[in-house]
Amino acid sequence: MNAAKNAANAADRTPAELLRSALAADAARPLVTYYDDATGERVELSVATLANWVAKTANLIQDELAAERGDRIALLLPAHWQTAAWLLACAAAGVVADLDGDPAAADAVVSGPDGLERALACPGERIALSLRPLGAPFLAPPEGFTDYARAAPAQPDAFAAYDPPGPDDPAVVVGGRELSGGRLVELARADAAARGLGPGDRLMSLMGFGTWEGVSAGLFAPLAAGASVVLCRNAERLDEAGRDARAASERVTHFAA
């Protein structure tokens, strides 16, 4: 069974295909476990749950933002489970996710609370994420923005791109480096192999999403390997004993810091 699952995964050439293979292999297994050590939040998302958020977000991108293949969305977001959903949704819709990109040069912008003032420079649609526990909405939606937590749940649970992207289409810009969907998958597989990640492994990442290394460790390498990630934000607030206890409770097998 594992060999068959791995063979199907080896044929994937885009991030959307990686997620589809993960769903087919074991939709119920944990994929992203998120901690915020500033708020005490812990959220665990199975493959199916994350895929549902991805579908709703991709529908929001395609139908509400009217974004087309090749458009760019600046993501002013930290390492967070909702950022993972946006990265995969942009890839599914054929839209380029520009992490910490220039809002003024983007077709749309998605921002957390810390980036709202900067995001106002975007001439297109603006989406705001509260990043509150459990994906709660803003208590008062920021002026000039659509509240993601109010807009996304109304979207369909299944997504089909009007103009599906291929492996040669650009998918993400991180640290000023643009990667096509195919190149992203290749690098994620290479990173997973270098870390020794395999099906069932659990990688605990303390890295941000400002570099490819952080984005790979925090999402794409575990996804490509059939593994899962324990994504920790504000982990500097956690002492060594706390990190060791978390690693033990989460059955962590690999680390990225």
Rank of each mutant, 00 (worst) to 15 (best):
N2Y: 06
A3P: 03
A4V: 09
N9K: 14
R13Y: 03
L23M: 13
D26E: 14
D26S: 14
D26V: 05
A27Q: 13
A28E: 14
P30F: 12
P30T: 07
P30L: 03
L31T: 01
D36V: 03
D36I: 04
A38K: 14
T39Q: 11
G40I: 12
R42S: 14
V47P: 10
L50S: 11
L50Q: 11
L50Y: 01
A51T: 03
N52W: 01
K56L: 12
A58V: 04
Q62M: 09
A67H: 08
R69T: 10
D71S: 14
R72I: 08
I73N: 00
I73V: 15
L77Y: 03
A79L: 04
A79R: 04
Q82N: 06
A84R: 13
W86N: 05
L88N: 03
L88V: 06
A92K: 00
A97E: 03
D98T: 07
G101P: 11
A104M: 09
A104E: 13
A105F: 02
A106V: 02
A108S: 15
V110M: 03
V110L: 15
V110Y: 00
S111W: 02
P113L: 11
D114Y: 06
G115D: 02
G115A: 11
E117H: 05
A121N: 04
C122E: 00
C122D: 00
R126I: 01
I127G: 00
R132D: 14
P133G: 11
G135Y: 01
P137G: 12
E143R: 12
E143H: 10
G144V: 06
T146P: 00
T146Q: 09
T146S: 15
D147F: 11
A151N: 10
A151T: 04
A151W: 08
A151L: 10
Q155P: 09
P156V: 05
D157S: 13
A158R: 15
A160L: 09
Y162L: 15
D168P: 05
P170Y: 09
G175T: 08
G175M: 07
G175I: 11
R177L: 15
G181V: 08
V185N: 01
L187A: 09
L187I: 13
L187C: 05
A188R: 01
A188M: 04
A190K: 15
A193S: 15
R195Q: 15
R195F: 07
R195V: 03
G198P: 01
G198C: 07
P199K: 04
S205Q: 06
L206T: 10
M207Y: 02
G208C: 10
G210M: 01
E213R: 13
A217I: 08
P222I: 07
P222D: 02
V230H: 01
R233E: 15
R233Y: 07
D239F: 07
E240C: 07
A241D: 09
R243V: 12
R243C: 09
R246P: 05
A247M: 13
A248H: 09
S249F: 04
E250V: 04
E250R: 08
A256W: 00
A256H: 00
A257Q: 14
A257V: 04
A257H: 12
